[in-house]
Write a protein that binds this DNA or RNA. Structure first.
Lengths: 267, 267
DNA sequence: ACACGGGTATTTGTCGGAGTAATTCTTTGG
DNA sequence: CCAAAGAATTACTCCGACAAATACCCGTGT
């Protein structure tokens, strides 16, 4: 695909500029590039993964635009747009003459779904997973409490339907997992807080990634449906404390499952 | 002219108003553009504010790249890079033939510092502020609890120094506010959770914006230093529950202050 | 010897135009 | 009436040149 660039004008290969190992271009071509994903997205994924995984340390500065875009066999425009994405997520910052530098980790937007995706390419850092579960443990019970206080009849109906679908399909099927997502989404709507909704979307994306990881390790999670039911009952009863406690149990369960999987797959 | 505004499909276009040729370009030039802020940043700020403030509703599609960039008197590259920033923050999505559409609010990354900035240009939405404080009420006590359990001697020293500086300068001075930030930063370091750190950075940015707003209304916040001291004491004593409670009180206080200010300045 | 100020080189930033690719809408054939 | 082929529209990518900003070097003056 990138070959089109080199061949389009039929320019002859210049010996003065040794092509160098286009290991980079290969790696770039290997990056998954689905329907909506454009070239700039692939570049962003490549650079973002390299940064989040630590291959490019904070403070380091990456190669200049012209050189780097040529190394990746992409145009400078596409490369620059990819860098803008990284900049928007706080991973890098660019200044004339100084170049584009990787920012300290404290500046990264770790809750951005894409950044989370990059963090989970390869082996996830156990400390990072622990941090994520600590956040879940803080936020999700609070969401459940708010939901218990504010839920409408429609919210309850949606949660009940999702719960029934979960029971029917189980979490082993895609339909079951969809129902699970719908349950949490309904809970979130019931909580009536847009900011928490946005945060939960990020967390949910992280949950999906860990779940994927769990499945990769072929671990069978124990049945979480009773816990979901407890959350539902407490929310329906308007019992904030009960809902928070039930949700806390749910998060703890997921944490324990994940930790087990990560322990049984050492290097 | 009106090119940059939302353009719903099927609606007949009014003929151009006879006003100044580039009203948009003027507005763009008026957008604050500090040292590091580039042209693309100004465009992103302009479009982002218009979207977050609701001037361009979700589902609406913005004018094509060529027309819109010309209307703003910027090159297509700069405009596209600005749109990439918005895309990275979940505000818009682009597809060939369909154009660039504003995404539903649930897709926005409301915790992104820039998005928060855009949300606070003009009158902040009271509901949004409430949501933010609910998040703070959930997360910050948890941070204090973790800090109480994990703080090192260095953490305590840093917090103590910041507290002293706060006492000396008070929050009316810039030095005092810097000390305040340092206190919270030290607390965060003590908690030892990178994800919470990233989240707190976003929240802190929102806090700064609300504080700015409070100052704009010339309201004098009551003295929060005793509450900070209580947090410090509990953290030093390793009292997780106490630290959480003290921090809860601090957040409540800030919420009350902000609400007062917002009540006394109705639209 | 050192502080300071100006010039210079390097790097990102902006520009404009041309051609490509993907997707929706339309049209046509079954 | 439906489905597949085609047309139109839009974003996407590429290219090459120029402008702006700033870190760095060097000469100057004290």
């Amino acid at each position: 695909m990138q070959a089109a660039q080199a061949c389009r004008k039929g320019e002859p290969m210049d010996k003065a500029k040794p092509e160098g190992p286009d290991q980079l271009a290969e790696a770039l071509a290997r990056t998954p590039r689905g329907s909506g994903r454009r070239l700039r997205g692939a570049v962003a994924h490549y650079l973002g993964s390299a940064i989040v995984s630590g291959q490019i340390a904070p403070g380091a500065k990456l190669t200049g635009e012209i050189a780097n875009s040529e190394a990746l066999n992409v145009s400078r425009s596409a490369y620059r747009e990819a860098v803008q994405v990284l900049t928007a997520k706080g991973l890098v910052a660019s200044k004339p003459k100084d170049g584009t530098r990787v920012m300290p980790r404290s500046n990264w937007n770790l809750l951005d779904p894409l950044v989370l995706t990059w963090a989970f390419t390869g082996e996830p850092d156990p400390g990072f997973v622990r941090d994520l579960f600590e956040l879940r443990a803080l936020v999700e019970p609070g969401i459940a409490r708010l939901a218990a206080e504010r839920r409408s009849k429609e919210d309850l109906a949606a949660m009940k339907a999702a719960l029934a679908a979960m029971r029917q399909h189980t979490l082993a099927t895609e339909a079951g997992r969809t129902a699970d997502r719908e349950f949490h989404e309904a809970l979130l709507r019931a909580a009536g807080n847009e900011v928490l909704m946005s945060l939960a979307a990020s967390i949910g994306s992280a949950v999906n990634l860990t779940t994927q990881y769990k499945q990769r390790a072929r671990a069978l999670p124990r049945d979480p449906i009773p816990d979901h039911a407890r959350v539902y009952d407490a929310v329906a009863a308007g019992d904030g404390d009960g809902a928070a406690a039930a949700m806390q149990a749910l998060v703890d369960l997921a944490h324990r499952d994940t930790r087990e999987v990560m322990d049984q797959t050492p290097g």
